[in-house]
Design a binder for these strands. Structure first.
Lengths: 341, 341
DNA sequence: TTGAAAGCGATACCAG
DNA sequence: CTGGTATCGCTTTCAA
């Protein structure tokens, strides 16, 4: 009985056994012009030996990896994991692999991850949001590869961007609630400064409340990002304590909206009869919940897909010696009126 | 005004500019013994140049990458993303980076990803479940690196495993419902054969129903994996149509349990008064929902953490020339009685 | 269509 | 503590 080979086979082993040169093996692997007979012969040996080419050697030699660096604030938020799916859909047909990183909503963590990912010479980078440390920006600029910022429209993009204005989207929701007749509208947000998109929504709310002359903003800030379902209950409790006559509440996310609605049920408040509640994101819970939740729909998957396409276009342009023209892709959002408001 | 350097600096550039050899730069980077003065001098140049070491070259030269390959059925399921967080917690202190892959519950996709990840010479591999294609098993065995299978306890593990018996956990829930006095208990599962853990839960349900003499199993199979919230509503509809006198329903996941409960609300059925509903997984929704959902709690984060520790131990043992002894780590689960059942 | 030789950019190893 | 040299496994380039 032979023991497992301590050393995996190399391309030279395959070449030798197939009676060809390394180059021929390399060509077979990369699907380039090789005679049918040789190709089959080599492929047979590859299969027999279970040969797996070393990507590090290939990357070093060719000067290009097959990696795309992707950074999201949280892998467990369904909107970001949808974005990741979109990126995967864009890149995997091109044989590019995602190098995924979870920044936990922290810019320093993002910087750390960018630094560590850049070591692998990714072909391009997708990151979330428009705020980054100065070091991150410098690192990315020096890397000289295409970069896309997702989920926002930065005033000063590093390279390109695919997103929408979170403030504008929030204003649209406030207007919707206003049109529905609500006048004493509150807002539930996270307490941390880390989630800029959440803060932008809050700013949009405040701006629109003022624009509509609806009095002082009623904002409750509570809890860390990512905002989850358990955020909603204490938040609406605090809101109703501070402003008992509130007739509608807008939440920074469908997650908190759901938590708030469940808390209302517990208190015997009927939604929307006693109080209207709206969310943001069009998460699955928003249309599965009873009552269904009025929300702002954003195509998270589409953001990833478009971001991927933008990067691929930049890569292709670069290959052709041109400069890509796309600088920003604006993603649509839509207020979806449902039962809860 | 100088244009951006078309070629990023190399270690030799740093060495030259700092007046030392490449080896000294390498030592500074890896934190090995270098005189304080030299270290500072070199670090200064590194910062000035924005030098980022090439990981591919390092991996090729040292024969070891800093990658850990991780495969989960779905990145957007909160249980698996918690497991990924656990793995990250275990590995990042050791400077190891996760190479994440989403198999979409498909074994062929898993095989494809394993093949592609193995090209990067990962130090070890964590995959989900006990079922894999024969090619996957062969690839992994030939790779000769530590492997852990998560979320199940395979009869024939590739190497090591960290998980629990999904069938046993489901039986515990059936017993719990039985102890609560329910006798006409149904089960809601996915229709696809792809999610083995879901199927194991279903099998556990059937076995326990028989063991308790509760008559014929009442199983509704509907929808693809991953099972999401929208699964629950049609499933409970079908169940109540087939067996209108059902007094309790056990769901393959908290997601479907939630969807089922919302559907009951819609139909004016009170949970648990008219019908009891239990879930699986102790997802956030299970304790935020009104009523709170009776479920089986599994420490998803802990599975990832333990899996990471198991792999690290195997790596350390290997380093020391020994064989790691750990073969399987059994993770506890617990039936959590809440309002819904 | 195929092969030989020359690196890619880092680290291991051995000297000094 | 520091430096030189060989080398990792593959692809590029050029020649046959």
């Amino acid at each position: 009985m032979t023991s497992r080979p301590p050393v995996p086979p190399r391309m030279s082993d395959v070449a030798e056994r197939a009676g060809v040169s390394k180059m021929t093996v390399s060509r077979v692997l990369s699907g380039r012009s090789v005679s049918q007979a040789t190709r089959e012969k080599v492929q047979k040996v590859i299969d027999e030996l279970g040969y797996v080419a070393d990507a590090a050697a290939g990357a070093l030699s060719s000067g290009r990896s097959e990696f795309v660096a992707v950074l999201v604030p949280s892998l467990s938020s369904s909107n970001f994991s949808d974005t990741v799916r979109g990126l995967t859909a864009a890149f995997s047909p091109h044989g590019l692999q995602l190098l995924l990183g979870d920044t936990d909503y922290r810019l320093e963590q993002e910087e750390l991850l960018v630094r560590s990912m850049l070591r692998h010479q990714p072909r391009c980078v997708a990151l979330t949001g428009s705020r980054h440390t100065e070091a991150t920006r410098t690192l990315l600029r020096r890397a000289g590869i295409p970069v896309v910022e997702m989920w926002d429209l930065p005033a000063d993009p590093i390279d390109t961007a695919v997103g929408f204005s979170n403030a504008t989207a929030a204003r649209a929701m406030v207007r919707h609630l206003h049109e529905c007749g609500y006048r004493r509208i509150g807002f539930i947000a996270g307490a941390s400064e880390r989630d800029r998109r959440g803060l932008d929504r809050m700013r949009g709310y405040v701006a629109e409340i003022k624009a509509l002359g609806l009095g002082e903003p009623r904002v409750i800030r509570l809890g860390e990002s990512p905002i989850t379902m358990s955020h909603g209950a204490p938040a609406i409790g605090a809101l109703l304590e501070a402003w008992p006559d509130t007739d509608a509440v807008m939440c920074v996310s469908d997650m908190s909206a759901f938590g708030a609605i469940m808390e209302c049920h517990r208190r015997g408040l009927s939604v929307p009869r006693d109080i209207a509640i709206a969310g943001f994101g069009n998460f699955e819970v928003s249309w599965c919940c009873q009552p269904t939740i009025t929300t702002v729909s954003v195509d998270a998957y589409g953001i990833g897909l478009r971001a991927g396409e933008t990067l691929l276009a930049a890569l292709a342009a670069r290959e052709a010696g041109q400069t890509s023209r796309t600088k920003a892709v604006k993603i649509d959002f839509e207020v979806i009126a449902r039962d809860s408001a």
